[in-house]
Amino acid sequence: MWSYPEINPVALSLGALAIHWYGLMYVIGFGAAWLLGLYRAQSSSVWDKDKVGDLLFYCALGVVLGGRMGYVLFYDFSGFVANPLSLVMVWQGGMSFHGGLLGVTLGMFLFARKVGLSLFSVADFVAPLVTIGLFAGRIGNFINGELWGKITDSSWGMWVYDPVIGEMIQKYPTQLLQALLEGLVLFVLLWWYSSKPRPSGSVAGLFLAAYGVFRIVAEFFRAPDAHLGYLAGDWLTMGMVLSLPMILIGLGLMVWAYKQPGLVSKEAK
């Protein structure tokens, strides 16, 4: 059995300026996505350094604005009403992947229209890059000591201090599980799948479907937000409800993509 190391959420303090690990994880995620995007662009006749940089800018705005607004809308609207400034306090955690996905989709749409590419072509290029940011974000959750799983006596449970009961207790480290599934495993899957020419939209479809499955798996181990609890019975969570449409849309998009003869994504290698 292992114990949570109680990591200081502040990575560096410079006078009144505090640099948080959570914020650094976003910088790392965006930086890694940019480098991988440049690597993928080398084997493409459509993408270049400038387009990758511009796309990253649009997606970064979508992640931050959509992620925070999605969290407020789906998980903590009452907290926003009590303190509207909480909308910009991203260093405290509280970012919704599903809200970020909507924000990134809007960003990709605007970028695609600007450069004259199809939305599916842009989404296929972006999909494998997103997973690195997901991995970094979940590590940020772990450092912040948030989003713990259910209480367990399993051998991979972690001893953590629970402020509600005022004592140490074993919980699933679901932040690390999500970093593994939504980050590393999903990255390998998408990188392998997109390494060959695929129907336009199929890579994005696989991302949506696979993420939805991985997220629902993690939700069975993850404790629901305290102010929301379970939506039905003692198992249905908001994360599951938001992920199920992703699976259906992703599978539908893949089926549609493979029925379009000769429609190959322009970024395919």
Rank of each mutant, 00 (worst) to 15 (best):
W256L: 11
L181E: 04
G212A: 10
Q260Y: 05
I28W: 10
F207P: 05
F187D: 08
L251D: 08
H227K: 14
S155R: 09
L24G: 06
G31F: 07
K196G: 08
V213F: 13
E267P: 01
R113Y: 01
W2T: 11
Q175G: 04
V241T: 06
G252R: 07
M168Q: 11
G29C: 10
D48S: 11
V64G: 00
V264N: 15
L186N: 13
V122I: 10
L176R: 04
D54Y: 10
L251C: 13
I169R: 01
D225F: 09
A210K: 01
G23S: 06
K171Y: 05
S45V: 03
S43Q: 13
F77Q: 11
G233T: 08
E219V: 02
V188F: 13
W192A: 14
H98C: 00
F97Y: 15
V72G: 02
Y230W: 09
H98A: 01
Y22S: 06
A223G: 03
D234A: 12
N141I: 02
W21V: 08
N141P: 03
M95I: 06
G31T: 14
G67W: 00
P224V: 08
D234S: 12
L263D: 15
P9T: 03
L102G: 15
M1S: 10
Y71R: 03
L236M: 10
V122W: 07
M108H: 05
G157H: 05
S195C: 11
V160R: 00
P197Q: 12
G212S: 11
S155Y: 15
Y172D: 03
L176S: 05
D48K: 06
Y211K: 06
W2C: 05
P224I: 04
I19W: 07
R40Y: 10
V185T: 07
L177H: 06
G37A: 11
T131P: 06
Y258C: 10
G99N: 12
G93N: 06
A18T: 10
K49S: 13
V264M: 15
L228N: 07
V164D: 14
L73W: 15
S3T: 14
T152D: 04
Q92C: 01
G79E: 12
L134Q: 14
W21K: 05
